[in-house]
Amino acid sequence: MSDEFTLKVWRGDKSGGQEVEYHVPAETGMVVLDALHHIQHNQAPDLAVRWNCKAAHCGSCGAEVNGQPKLLCKTRMDDYAGETVSVRPMQTFPVIKDLVTDVSWNYQVAKEIPLLEPTSPAPFKMQQIDADRVQEFHRCIECFLCQDTCHVLRNHEGQQKYFGPRFMAKIAEFEMHPMDGEDRIPLLAHQAGLNMCNVTKCCTEVCPQHIRITDNAIIPLKERVADRYYDPIKILLRRLGGKKGEPGKANTPVAN
């Protein structure tokens, strides 16, 4: 390992900016956030970087390292031995300063998703096999790296048309819950823009929590939307049965 790392850190704000080169002494086990802290403490005290837990649990330090969306606290410098490490803010969101972006759009989207609507009053019991499926989505730390890499939001300016993968996982978490009685399929088909997603799996590739967003959330939800809006036989059967929508969820508590 060489004695120092070279970083090019994007510095600027919404009016523009550029990459500035820094040299940081190498230390064993150093992560990109450590290198940025060294720069902050010794060379550029005004460098803005958002962080909190430094343990890949809070989701604050999302940025792009050599173009790849990463958590700065989980990305080791020695993965880039011999390379100049470029650190830029997430490009899907507006920059506030340096590596800090304004992710507030995500919180606005979150408010538009109906929360869990229990079919019977809590506390309720369910078996582990049912909890497993939704618990995968509970691992999300809302770092928004999936939103950053999603090309619908990133390249096609799709914020008005698509909620993004983070919120597909959120909706799946509620929609697949055994005790939920809310119907979010119309929301998915229209306002949430599920079919803007073309299942190219970048969100799954960058997820630091290893949630299989595409396979376990987006595709199952697409199939549910297909049940309701695209499957001609199911549509015909529903019309013959005089039902506009699907039958309501009639879940019953697990027998003890």
């Binding site: 369910m126 078996q127 096999i129 049912d130 929609e175 697949m176 819950h177 055994p178 939920d180 199952p220 199939e223 549910r224 049940d227 969820k249 879940n251 019953t252 508590p253 697990v254 027998a255």
Partner: peptide, 12 residues
């Protein structure tokens, strides 16, 4: 996969 509950009758 279309189902929300795999064990509502008490067993898988």
């Amino acid at each position: 996969g279309r189902k929300d509950c795999f064990s509502c009758d008490g067993k898988p």
